[in-house]
């Protein structure tokens, strides 16, 4: 249930980002909402389930954005693994420490992917501008905290099942007599 919910949320974030957050094709202030989910999954969900959530998200992003397929796979999986490694070393598991890491890893991974793509397919991307990427990083960092809270709530809701199985469980023993 958690996986399914996060898949839906991921797809919704990608759609939101490519529609409402992009009034014009060159709009700068579009926050990379998907990366916040990548960060949250790295900190709060185990690796197999995180990867199951990331596959459809990566696929949707590659389809809706960019001209080089696999770029978002590199960003998402790279960012996820980096944050997972960092979270293992992190002594305190609090949002205060996790949120800046999400922003920093976003910047680092984006730059690494840019350099790699420039090496493999030169001239296919817009030139790297630090100030633009810093604006995007600030947006990602600023939105990380509220989105983390939202994802927390979603995760709690996901753990609640529709039916309380304890009530439906058949008891073939007489507990009173045992007592």
């Amino acid at each position: 249930m958690v996986v399914l919910n996060f898949i839906v949320v991921g797809v919704m974030l990608a759609i939101l980002q490519t529609t409402l957050c992009m009034p014009t094709p060159t709009w700068l202030l579009a926050p990379d909402l998907y990366y916040v989910l990548v960060g949250y999954l790295a900190f709060h969900l185990d690796l197999p389930r995180s990867l199951i959530v990331l596959f459809p998200l990566v696929c949707v992003l590659d389809v809706l954005s960019g001209t080089i397929l696999g770029m978002y796979a590199l960003i998402c999986f790279g960012g996820h693994l980096l944050l997972r490694l960092l979270s293992a070393k992190l002594p305190v598991k609090q949002y205060l420490y996790q949120v800046p890491l999400v922003g920093l890893s976003y910047l680092a991974v984006s730059w690494a992917v840019y350099l790699l793509l420039e090496l493999l397919e030169p001239g296919q991307q817009v030139s790297w501008y630090w100030w633009k990427m810093l604006v995007r990083t600030v947006l990602v960092t600023a939105l990380s905290y509220p989105l983390f809270l939202l994802f927390d709530w979603l995760q709690k809701q996901s753990h609640r099942s529709f039916l309380t199985w304890n009530r439906l469980r058949l008891r073939n023993d007489n507990r009173r007599r045992q007592a």
């Binding site: 490519t18 992009m22 094709p25 709009w27 840019y114 991307q125 817009v126």
Partner: peptide, 14 residues
Amino acid sequence: IVGKDPSTQFRSVI
């Protein structure tokens, strides 16, 4: 147009 590319590296629309 139904969607726009949100990345800083590319310029495309759906």
